[in-house]
């Protein structure tokens, strides 16, 4: 990735963090913490890596992106609107009656959403099915699945991990948003996932580590994952929950708390000060 591209994506993520705080403050519901930790990951995919066409969201042979940690969908929707999948005005209708933007991603309401998700642990198996379907159609498209680190506590993830290894789906790329915090506390407090890289390695996966807030680092990790010849890949992206808003960082309370007026001012000031 060129330095120019990195700068462009950095600017976008700063703008998107601002948009996110604006939207969630306006609607007084939604999940800021996990949306902010995934900002660089989702933006790099949508503005550099994914082979997708907003004009033709069902195009054959396109890359697929599944937001398995569906609660981070505000950041997904902001990216999709900017790419032109639907009008930006729709963003303020998030979670409101009659909106196509549901509280968790809904494939039959929002154009470009590839899979409904939200109940955790479902996206990796579905992504595996997609990747196998692509292979049967002799397509060289990639299927990306963004997982939360709390999400891998779900047993279904490991069923899918075992199967992806059996079927050698090298074009299936999982990304772990490893922010260390879940709803009730840190993963260490609630349910540690231990050395998660070793676990996936022992399941036969190609494990790649990167800094999930460093766009060049994440971009390189994706490029490396795409080179895998037989194994499915998982990119373990080290992130910070609530990244970019100091009082949200690393705090489980900001998993899904409404943003109050003073908090809003402070968050906007911090995000305005960043570049």
């Amino acid at each position: 990735m060129t330095e120019e591209k990195v700068l462009e994506l950095k600017e976008r993520t700063l703008k998107f963090r601002n948009d996110l705080v604006d939207i969630l403050h306006h609607i007084q519901t939604g999940h800021p913490g996990g949306s902010l930790s995934a900002a660089e990951i989702i933006t790099t995919l949508y503005f550099d890596k994914l082979n997708i066409d907003p004009e033709n969201p069902k195009a054959e042979g396109r890359d697929r992106f599944i937001l398995s940690k569906g609660h981070a969908c505000p950041m997904l929707y902001i990216n999709m609107a900017e790419r032109g999948f639907f009008p930006k005005e729709d963003l303020m209708t998030l979670r409101q009656t009659d909106s196509h933007l549901q509280g968790h991603p809904c494939a039959h309401k929002t154009p470009g959403v590839e899979l409904s998700a939200g109940p955790l642990g479902l996206g990796l198996g579905a992504g595996l099915g997609m990747a196998l379907g692509e292979r049967m159609k002799k397509s060289d498209a990639y299927t990306y699945v963004l997982l939360g680190d709390g999400e891998v506590q779900e047993g279904g993830i490991w069923e899918a991990a075992m199967a992806a290894s059996k079927y050698k789906t090298n074009r299936l790329i999982a990304i772990l948003d490893n922010n260390g915090v879940q709803l009730d506390g840190t993963l260490e407090e609630i349910m540690t996932i231990g050395d998660i890289g070793s676990k996936f390695e022992s399941f036969g996966w190609n494990v790649i580590r990167c800094d999930g807030h460093d766009i060049a680092s994440f971009s390189n990790a994706v490029d490396e994952a795409k080179m895998s010849e037989e194994r499915p890949s998982i990119i373990i992206a080290e992130t910070v929950k609530g990244k970019g808003v100091s009082f949200m960082e690393g705090k489980n309370i900001w998993h899904g708390k409404p943003i109050g007026p003073e908090e809003y001012k402070k968050a906007k000031m911090e995000l305005g000060g960043q570049n």
Partner: peptide
């Protein structure tokens, strides 16, 4: 879960 992925591929 996997079957869903196949269905999305036609």
């Amino acid at each position: 879960s996997m079957s869903t992925g196949f269905a999305t591929q036609g």
